[in-house]
Design a protein around this nucleic acid. Structure first.
Lengths: 149, 149
DNA sequence: TATTGTTATACTCTATAACTATA
DNA sequence: TATAGTTATAGAGTATAACAATA
């Protein structure tokens, strides 16, 4: 029961190995935020990546309902990481944007992430790093193709 | 600002590529359980991997406090996936174990995971799959070394 | 008295449904 | 009336602190 023609065996191996990568990736966040939860961090990253956006669009990006997105914004606004502003043309459309404190927090998280991953990558040979990056890149590409069903 | 001598750039690339892997890995779970949340699934996997164990040890494995572990067990017991049993020698030590339904659910999740990952892996070339597996394996090894600080 | 587990309480996150205010 | 957002309510997950039972 080794290779056969299916990729079940490989899938198991890769899944197991992926766990450590996921853990290392997440650890950078834990370190930096401290006060901010993972969903809140995801929201901040989404706002940062897509510029000021409406609450509804934020919910779509996070795959959450409008009510959940609204609650998230409540808490982020309360801690001063996000700012709400009534829309100019359509006053129903509230737009949210990062405050300076929010931007600073994201920078910290990014730095912590890179530091953490970097430490581990530094312990790998250049060939191994290349293999990892190429494998992951191709996986991401294949996953994107598979998603277009 | 390209390669320099640090691995910051690589860390960013790998982090970004890892997200799709994480997503694909998680998707298998979503499909199979439906009714069971991610923390509950983690608990079931822990019980499965370490055999019948005490609530306290389960909490340690999940990196959760005893009270949280106890609540989790409440819900899993209520849905019939887990069974509690008072300890024989020490009656304070409640041991938890999987019910047949719990075991069945884990099998479903494992199958769904492998199917999902397998579909994507099938769209990659053998060389790419090899590169991914080797890269991940070495990463896991390096992460384990880095953890021994 | 120390340990194991549970219960009390509180906060975040999420969802469904009802409501408000625009348009 | 349709839409964007919010609020009401409820359940899951987790944490701190108080409590119960056993050792």
């Amino acid at each position: 029961m080794r290779h056969k023609d299916s990729h079940d065996w490989l899938a198991g191996e890769i899944g197991a190995a992926a766990e450590s990568l996921v853990l290392a990736w997440a650890r950078g966040e834990e370190q930096a935020h401290g006060t901010v939860s993972v969903p809140q961090l995801r929201a901040l990253f989404a706002v940062d990546a897509h510029g000021p956006l409406t609450v509804g669009r934020l919910g779509t990006l996070l795959d959450a309902l409008p009510s959940s997105a609204s609650r998230l914004c409540d808490r982020l606004e309360a801690t001063g990481l996000l700012a709400r502003q009534a829309g100019a043309s359509d006053r129903r459309a509230t737009t949210v944007s990062l405050t300076p404190a929010g931007r600073e927090l994201l920078d910290d998280v990014r730095r912590a992430r890179q530091r953490h991953l970097g430490e581990i990558l530094a312990a790998m040979s250049p060939e191994q790093r290349t293999a990892l990056l190429e494998g992951l890149t191709e996986f991401a590409r294949a996953a994107a193709r598979a998603n277009d069903d």
